[in-house]
């Protein structure tokens, strides 16, 4: 597979076209806004976290490239039902996957389908696209309202 086909795997193209949980949550307990000033990607992430720290619902909206949008979409799928602690651990693993520090075949079984983002590591300029929604999610959990990655 060429590097470009590895970057734009079928699943990424599909999530870009039909993003899941692409909506707002009016009574969200946590929200944050994430920007990438260089490319103009801009997302809102909404979470409803229950008293036990479990993510009951998670959604996102905004504009961005295929990588950032598909990443946000698949993040919402995997995080629904997870605890805050698990979400942060997954972010850490996902970050390592995107930067090439984690081999999806050896480690990172928890990431499941997110392994399709391993191709991003060959495109240093695109790593920030893949992690934007994750940064935004973790800022929301930290009660930080706006973040900007570069």
């Amino acid at each position: 597979m060429s590097a470009i086909d590895e970057l734009y795997q079928e699943m990424i193209i599909e999530h870009n076209r039909n993003p899941r949980n692409f909506r707002t949550i009016d009574d969200a307990t946590h929200t944050a806004e994430g920007f990438n000033p260089i490319c103009g990607d801009h997302f809102h992430v909404y979470l409803t976290v229950d008293a036990e720290g479990r993510i009951e619902d998670i959604a996102f909206e905004g504009k961005g490239c295929a990588i950032s949008k598909a990443s946000a979409s698949m993040m919402t799928q995997i995080l629904k039902g997870k605890t805050e602690t698990e979400a942060r651990e997954l972010f850490d693993q996902f970050h390592k996957l995107a930067t090439g520090e984690l081999d999806p075949d050896q480690q990172g079984k928890d990431l499941g389908k997110l392994a399709v983002f391993s191709g991003v590591s060959k495109f240093p300029a695109r790593v920030k696209c893949a992690v934007l929604s994750w940064h935004t999610m973790s800022s929301a959990l930290d009660h930080v309202k706006v973040i900007s990655t570069e």
């Binding site: 970057l7 490319c39 490239c65 495109f123 300029a125």
Partner: peptide
Amino acid sequence: VHAHDVGSILDQDGVAIRAG
């Protein structure tokens, strides 16, 4: 298609443009 996706695809073909 977002300009950044266009830029990455062109770059892999050796074509350097700016996207943003």
